[in-house]
Structures are given as C-alpha cells and as structure tokens.
C-alpha cells in the first residue's frame, strides 16, 4: 500500500487516505476541437509501465488534489507536487532522469 506525501499539508499518508484521479497533465479539449483531439483528451491514456504522472486527492485529509510522479512497476515515487501546474517541475524531471536515464 503506497505512501505518498501530500504537498499541500506536508503529511506522508497511506493510500487509504487518498483518492486516485488518473493521469495528470491532460489538456482539456472543448467545443471546437477536432474529433481526434477530443478522443485523446477523453479516452487515450498512457497506461504506462514505468514513469507515470498521476493525480491524487488527499480525500480523508486536507481535501486538496496533488500530483505524483511514480514508477508503476517499481512503485518508486520520484516526487509529489502541486496540482496547479501544467507540467512536472524541473526538480522532479531531473530526479527521474537521474533514476531512469530518461
């Protein structure tokens, strides 16, 4: 059972205190978007074996969403960060590079 640190309240909590929210950094496509764009937004997910950026809500705690970079196979957590961002922060990307070479 995963342990993740909520960057909003600073607590490291177990998975049962969190609610998962799927893949992070999706770009919303609304009216005016092409079928392909809309399909990608609504349905296409990385579902990766490896580094995954994902959404979590500290549902039983401060109620805030945060994002996590995690390896879905090894369960290594490269870091958690604010949900108010459109891309992973540089320090987390650096850590992923350091750990995975990618």
């Amino acid at each position: 059972m995963l342990l993740l640190k909520c960057p909003n309240c600073g607590l490291s909590v177990e998975e049962t205190e969190l609610a998962p929210g799927g893949e992070a950094h999706l770009k919303r496509f609304g009216p005016g978007s092409s079928d392909d764009e809309f399909e990608a937004y609504l349905f296409n997910r990385e579902n990766t074996k490896g580094v995954h950026f994902e959404r979590w809500r500290h549902a039983y705690g401060c109620g805030k969403w945060f994002l996590a970079a995690r390896d879905t196979a090894t369960l290594e957590v490269f870091g958690t960060y604010s949900a108010q961002t459109t891309e992973p922060p540089a320090d987390i990307l650096a850590r992923i590079r350091e750990r995975t070479g990618k």
Partner: peptide, 13 residues
C-alpha cells in the same frame, strides 16, 4: 462536491 473541487483545483485554479 469532489467534482467541483477537481475542476477548481486542477483546471481553473
């Protein structure tokens, strides 16, 4: 409630 918070925190923050 969660749906509203999701949009407010993660899309239109």
């Amino acid at each position: 409630h969660g749906w509203m918070e999701d949009w407010l925190q993660c899309e239109w923050w």
